[in-house]
């Protein structure tokens, strides 16, 4: 049977790994290829790498980074940040990404999801959704959480899946950076709404948090600071999850 995936996330800016609280106050913690290789050795199931500063000018740096990471790794790599058109996705895939993640550009132009899925297949197409709690639901926010969109997050997830997203990378904007656990209600609602896999993101600080997200319906759990800080390896977390009864790849 399929194992639950544990996915370290590297936030990258200008070719270096950073991780800030709510994407602000970035601090430098290393080389993406070094960290990626270390995570693979620890037992990471995939690597997500988000270019948090992606601009037109930094495009070549980003592609170069993807090439370097690819050379070091033989597990799947998802790259997001700055994917605005089909050609951006193509360049990332040619550089060595296995999947591309789209966020703001997909909200502004949902047809982008359809085009990328048609060109490269559903298995390459990831839609990242940043969701913020409202009174009775969740709203999609974009541009690093600064801009509300008025879109209902669950409706958007469903539309993204219908348009060809192969999986949804779902970040709780309320929980991200808090280290107090994922938004479990959001994960439950999203996983019930669509058939494609849901990757939980935002708020993880312990194996217990990962366990709760998987119980709530997530198919994979993404975490950054829990691993970057060096307190726990991916292997440590997997052993703890296995003890809790989660099926993980040893």
């Amino acid at each position: 049977m399929l194992a639950s995936r544990i996915i370290p996330c590297l936030d990258v800016s200008n070719g270096r790994v950073v991780k800030g609280i709510k994407f602000q106050g970035l601090r430098d913690t290393g080389d993406p290829a070094d960290l990626g290789g270390a995570y693979e050795a620890q037992g990471a199931d995939e690597l997500v790498f988000l270019d948090v500063s992606a601009t037109v000018e930094s495009r070549d740096t980003q592609l170069d980074t993807v090439r370097k990471v690819r050379e070091r790794m033989s597990i799947p790599i998802t790259v997001g940040g700055g994917v605005r058109k089909v050609e951006d996705a193509r360049a990332l895939l040619e550089a060595g990404a296995d999947k591309v993640s789209m966020n703001t550009a997909a909200v502004l132009n949902p047809e982008l999801i359809t085009e990328v899925a048609e060109q490269f297949g559903r298995q390459c197409t990831v839609v990242a959704v940043d969701a913020k709690r409202t009174e009775d639901s969740w709203e999609v926010v974009v541009s690093g959480g600064r801009k509300p969109t008025g879109k209902d997050a669950l409706d958007w997830i469903e539309e993204a899946a219908n348009r060809g997203a192969g999986e949804i990378l779902l970040t709780s904007w309320d929980q991200d950076g808090t280290r107090s656990g994922y938004d479990l209600d959001l994960l439950k609602a999203a996983s019930e709404r669509v058939q494609v896999p849901i990757i939980a993101s935002g708020g993880a600080a312990s194996s217990q948090h990962l366990f709760e997200a998987l119980q709530a319906g997530a198919d994979a759990v993404l975490a950054a600071s829990i691993f970057h800080d060096g307190d726990m390896t991916v292997g440590d977390v997997k052993r703890e999850l296995a003890e809790m009864g989660v099926r993980v790849r040893p």
Partner: peptide
Amino acid sequence: GIANIASVQAGFK
């Protein structure tokens, strides 16, 4: 097609 050809090539390397 293109997709993850780079990964396949890295694998063979």
